[in-house]
Design a protein around this nucleic acid. Structure first.
Length: 434
DNA sequence: TCTGGGGTCCTAGGACCC
DNA sequence: TCTGGGGTCCTAGGACCC
């Protein structure tokens, strides 16, 4: 019998902020997205105030001020580093092939190896003590609280994790091995909270009186398969304890790299739009090189404000490169030609994005005798990456991205409430006593 | 005034082949 | 009058995840 654990950091971004400012413990905390646009993380106290996930910040500002909620702009340097620390600790508990980093704040474990024989009580005891050790270690070494759900499938482990969070007496760990406990849990779970059931499916299910996870588990299989395709069917089978989603093979490289940003103010000048896209391309290219990949296809899209009803404009295009590359110079050239093609004068642009597709490991590139990359780029990129690592982001960049130092870019965001990058910048270390 | 960003997977439908 | 059947591959777009 397969057995999965889902380890999930509680209110991750908010918890990261608390690690470095213990005064925030017990107080409501929210963390905002880029440009301070949306609320993307909430402490339990903030959740209790009714502040929903992904709500626009400006709509909740009054509530936030009234209740003295502590507000932070997103600090991805900090969260990324804390995530790496947590994952390193988790990875230490099991051989590599039993562990999967699922997202910045979640990981799956395959716990088959912990089970011995059919002694239900003994197995349960063993799982609970293992989970408790994991939880305690992560907490002690990083300050981040985690919850753990254990069950026969990934979908049920997700549900168990949710239970662990909701049920204070569960001590943040919920393990289940028998069907009766599982059904009791699923009966209390809205169908929309099931992993893999989003807004659309949830609506469709409710229209057929399927309102809880248990309803979905017991719904006619053929109907689910027809209405929700194999994806929904798989979810249903997982709820029934049949494991359909394996632990992911982490050796696979990712298939796309995307960088997109909303602009603080609408951009009306095409020159500025070009600069923004060139700058985003530079960011994405850095990531490409970090992952030791090259890209064969570039796609750019731009759009105006999607919330204003009149004159909405969006456009996109893609280009296949003559040879796979990781050179910012080649990629910015391709991106600029696309912007030329898709952008029109006379709009106030609010967002641009660049995506790299057709990614292959750099050391596995097919060479083409008719189209050869400029070999000088490799050393230029190496110099760029080295200098930027040493002297900071954008110390060296292409002229096409404009000069951030002028500070006049309408497309650059503001992050007014960002905390210090305590763990990744020498200049921003936490001061214990001065 | 102000509404995030980075991914994956699946399907439907068209083009094309024999 | 009547116009097959089986297969592959590709792409755009939707739905979902955190």
């Amino acid at each position: 019998m397969p057995l999965f654990a889902l380890i999930d950091c509680n209110n991750f971004f908010a918890s990261c902020e608390r690690v470095f400012d213990p005064h925030l413990v017990g107080k409501p905390v929210v963390v905002l997205s880029n440009n301070d646009g949306c609320i993307v993380a909430r402490s339990n106290e903030a959740k209790a105030l009714g502040i929903p996930m992904a709500a626009p910040y400006f709509q909740w500002r009054a509530v936030i001020e009234q209740h003295n909620v502590h507000v932070f702009s997103s600090n991805y340097a900090l969260y990324g580093d804390m995530s790496r620390r947590v994952m390193d600790i988790l990875a230490g508990f099991l051989p590599e092939e039993y562990f999967e980093v699922y997202s910045v704040d979640e990981a799956f474990m395959n716990l088959d190896c912990l089970l011995r024989g059919d002694d239900y009580a003994a197995n349960r005891e063993k799982l609970l003590s293992f989970a408790e050790e994991v939880r305690r270690t992560v907490r002690q070494w990083t300050g981040i609280p985690v919850s753990i759900g254990i069950a026969q499938t990934k979908t049920l482990a997700k549900a168990a994790n949710r239970m662990a969070k909701k049920n204070a007496s569960a001590n943040s760990i919920f393990a289940r091995l028998d069907e009766a406990t599982a059904d009791a849990m699923l009966a209390t779970m809205p169908v929309g909270d099931v992993w893999g059931v989003g807004r659309k499916l949830s609506e469709a299910y409710k229209a057929h009186s399927i309102t809880t996870a248990l309803d979905l588990k017991n719904a006619p299989e053929e109907w689910v398969r027809k209405r929700a395709t194999v994806v929904g069917w798989r979810t249903q089978r997982e709820l029934r304890g049949v494991s359909c989603v394996r632990l992911e093979n982490t050796n696979e490289h990712q298939h796309s790299i995307l960088h997109s940003r909303s602009f603080r103010h609408a951009v009306t000048s095409l020159d500025q739009l070009h600069e923004a896209v060139a700058s985003f391309t530079g960011r994405a290219a850095e990531k490409l090189r970090r992952l030791r990949l090259v890209c064969g296809c570039v796609s750019v899209s731009v759009r105006t404000n999607r919330f204003s009803s009149h004159d909405y404009f969006s456009n996109g295009g893609e280009a296949i490169l003559p040879f796979p590359t990781d050179s910012t110079i080649d990629l910015v050239n391709a991106a600029s030609m696309l912007v030329e093609k898709i952008a029109q004068e006379g709009h106030g642009y609010k967002k641009a994005s660049i995506t790299f597709f057709d990614l292959t490991p750099r050391n596995r590139v097919q060479t083409d005798i008719f189209a050869q990359p400029d070999t000088r780029h490799e050393s230029i990129m190496h110099v760029m990456d080295t200098l930027n690592k040493r002297f900071g982001k954008d110390a060296l960049h292409l002229a096409a991205s404009g000069s951030a130092q002028t500070g006049s870019h309408a497309w650059q965001g503001a992050t007014d409430e960002r905390s210090q990058r305590y763990t990744t910048h020498w200049g921003e270390l936490k001061v214990v006593r001065s």
